[in-house]
Measured scan of single mutants.
Amino acid sequence: RKEMTAACTPRRRIINLTSVLSLQEEINEQGHEVLREMLHNHSFVGCVNPQWALAQHQTKLYLLNTTKLSEELFYQILIYDFANFGVLRLSEPAPLFDLAMLALDSPESGWTEEDGPKEGLAEYIVEFLKKKAEMLADYFSLEIDEEGNLIGLPLLIDNYVPPLEGLPIFILRLATEVNWDEEKECFESLSKECAMFYSIRKQYISEESTLSGQQSEVPGSIPNSWKWTVEHIVYKALRSHILPPKHFTEDGNILQLANLPDLYKVFERC
């Protein structure tokens, strides 16, 4: 597991931080080997919608929660590849102030007048994250320049770009939802926020969305749709870069829909 690298990086740093090793061990302890084997050997059937997909393993048909699986995938990559990410360069710098204002204007932020003026909160978020810029760049390849612009994001899987519609809320939550006081809790909560931002979430995906850094293989055609990215990038990574937690067998994120021999018997009677 320590050699797990989802995106190509030129050289690998050895990380011996106790906090990170502890988080890696927790993933191992909570892992479910049968689910790992199923995901490793599954045959992708198709997307139901951005949140759900169908896959077959041996004779069984499964309904998989793409949102939760991708979130767990990105969390584990962030923990196992800690401080070893490439950088996704933004085509132009994104001012943190503008991103924070967009987030505060969104109902998702939960902002009320009692929280104070949005401009003041946005300025605080910019200054707060600028103070964390060195650590964010060093460990997470999340790059913020001296003017308070976001200029780079971590490359977690080759050819995958997170849904940038979720970027404003991500920046807001970096400042408000991460435990910045304790090292282990900081790395864990920061990785979880980043994983949620990178995950496939239906509120940020339309039929026209593209999450891939590449064009489709047909010359002159439109960019790959999110469905292509889910199948050929995300579920491909799920084959080798995730140890599913045991609770996925109990919380409805992986559901067995049918045993195909039983279905064949039904059709034979028709």
Rank of each mutant, 00 (worst) to 15 (best):
R1V: 12
K2W: 14
K2Y: 14
E3M: 11
M4H: 09
A6P: 12
A6R: 12
P10C: 14
R13A: 11
R13F: 15
R13H: 13
I14N: 06
I14Y: 12
I15Y: 11
I15K: 07
N16D: 05
T18V: 11
T18F: 15
L21C: 07
S22T: 10
S22A: 12
L23P: 15
Q24V: 12
E25Q: 11
E26F: 13
Q30A: 13
Q30V: 10
G31A: 06
G31R: 09
H32S: 05
V34K: 10
V34L: 10
R36A: 12
E37M: 12
M38V: 08
L39C: 12
H42I: 11
G46F: 01
G46T: 02
G46D: 02
C47D: 02
C47T: 09
V48G: 13
V48N: 13
P50E: 06
Q51D: 08
W52H: 10
A53M: 13
L54Y: 09
Q56G: 03
Q56I: 03
Q56L: 02
H57Y: 09
T59I: 14
K60D: 13
K60W: 12
K60S: 11
Y62T: 13
Y62E: 02
Y62K: 02
L63Y: 06
L64C: 07
L64Q: 02
L64G: 01
K68N: 07
L69P: 00
L69V: 07
L69Y: 11
E71Q: 04
E72R: 04
E72L: 06
Y75I: 02
Y75G: 11
Y75D: 01
I77D: 03
Y80M: 02
F82C: 01
N84R: 11
N84A: 10
F85G: 09
F85P: 02
F85H: 12
F85I: 12
G86L: 14
V87F: 05
V87S: 06
E92M: 06
E92L: 09
P93T: 07
A94E: 02
P95F: 05
P95R: 04
L99T: 02
L99V: 09
A100W: 00
M101V: 13
L104H: 00
L104D: 00
L104Q: 01
D105N: 02
S106P: 13
P107K: 05
E108V: 05
S109N: 04
W111A: 15
E113V: 02
E113C: 03
E114Q: 07
E114P: 11
D115T: 12
G116F: 15
P117M: 15
K118F: 15
K118C: 15
K118T: 15
G120W: 15
L121C: 01
I125K: 01
V126H: 06
E127V: 08
E127R: 02
F128R: 01
L129H: 10
K131G: 12
K131T: 12
E134N: 02
E134A: 03
M135D: 03
L136V: 12
L136G: 01
F140D: 01
F140E: 01
S141D: 14
S141A: 10
L142W: 02
E143Q: 04
I144W: 01
D145L: 01
E146A: 04
N149E: 11
N149V: 07
L150R: 01
L150G: 01
I151Q: 04
G152F: 01
L153T: 02
L153Y: 01
P154A: 01
P154F: 00
L156D: 00
L156R: 00
I157K: 03
D158F: 08
N159Y: 04
N159F: 12
Y160D: 00
V161H: 03
V161D: 09
V161A: 04
L164F: 07
L164M: 05
E165Q: 03
L167T: 02
L167M: 04
L167A: 04
P168N: 13
I169K: 06
R173F: 01
A175T: 14
A175N: 15
T176L: 03
E177V: 03
V178F: 01
N179I: 08
D181K: 02
D181I: 10
E182K: 03
E183F: 04
E183V: 02
K184C: 06
K184F: 06
E185F: 12
E185C: 06
C186W: 03
L190Y: 15
E193Y: 02
F197T: 01
S199I: 01
I200S: 06
R201Q: 14
Q203R: 04
S206Q: 04
S206I: 07
T210K: 08
L211Y: 05
L211S: 04
S212Y: 08
S212I: 11
G213M: 08
E217K: 06
E217N: 07
G220N: 09
S221R: 11
I222T: 03
I222V: 05
P223M: 05
N224M: 06
N224L: 06
K227I: 10
K227L: 09
K227W: 10
V230T: 05
I233R: 10
I233D: 14
V234E: 00
V234C: 14
V234N: 00
A237Y: 07
L238N: 01
R239E: 14
H241Q: 08
H241A: 10
I242K: 12
L243Q: 12
L243V: 06
P244L: 12
P245K: 10
P245W: 15
H247V: 11
H247E: 05
T249H: 04
T249I: 09
T249K: 04
T249R: 10
E250V: 13
D251C: 05
G252S: 08
N253G: 12
L255Y: 13
L255G: 11
Q256A: 06
Q256I: 11
N259C: 06
L260P: 03
L260E: 04
L260I: 03
P261C: 10
P261L: 13
D262A: 07
V266D: 15
V266Q: 15
C270M: 15
C270V: 15
